[in-house]
Computed example of a mutant assay.
Amino acid sequence: MASQQDRDAVSEEFRHRREDGAYEVTIGGTPAGVASYHLANGIADFHHTEVVPAFGGRGVAGRLVRFAMDDVRAAGQWKVRASCPYVVHWFGEHPEYADLLA
C-alpha cells in the first residue's frame, strides 16, 4: 500500500518558467512551490524558495531545488549563486552539486 507521500510524489510536476525566472512544482495540479532566480552574466542567483504550507514538511523544496540544479547542469550554460538561505543549505547537504556554484 502506497503512503500519502508516495501518492503525492507520483503526481508532482516540475517546470522551468524561464520567462519568469522560476522553477515551479505542482502536486496534483495544485501549485506547491517555486524557486526563483535572477539571471545576469551567466550566473543564476537563486534568491527565493517557497513551498505552500499545505505541502510543507514533505521534502518538496529539496526535490524542486534538485530539479532546478539538474536542469542547470544539463543545459551547461549557467553557474549558480545561492543567496536564498534554503538553497545555501541545500548545497551544503549536496556537495556533489558544488561544481555549479559561481
Rank of each mutant, 00 (worst) to 15 (best):
M69W: 04
A75S: 09
L64F: 01
L64E: 09
G21H: 01
Q5E: 13
L64M: 09
H94C: 09
V10F: 01
G62Q: 04
G29C: 08
V10W: 07
R66Q: 06
L100D: 15
I43E: 14
D99P: 07
A75R: 11
G42F: 11
V34S: 15
A9Q: 02
Y86L: 01
Q4Y: 12
R58H: 08
D8Y: 14
A35M: 02
A61H: 01
C84P: 01
I27N: 12
V60I: 05
G42T: 12
V51M: 01
H48W: 13
V60Q: 05
S83M: 02
V65G: 02
E50G: 13
Q77A: 14
G29V: 05
R73Q: 12
S36T: 12
A74Y: 11
S36I: 00
V60W: 09
L101S: 03
E96W: 11
E12C: 13
G33C: 02
P95M: 14
S11M: 11
D45H: 10
H47L: 13
E19W: 07
R15T: 14
V52S: 12
P31I: 02
A82R: 03
V65M: 01
R63K: 11
D70C: 00
D71W: 00
G57R: 13
A82T: 03
G76C: 08
N41M: 00
V87I: 05
Y86D: 02
V88K: 13
P85E: 05
V72P: 05
E19T: 07
Q4C: 06
D20E: 15
M69G: 03
A35V: 08
F55G: 11
T26R: 14
P53V: 14
E19C: 09
N41T: 08
S3P: 15
M1T: 08
A40T: 05
R15Q: 13
W78Q: 08
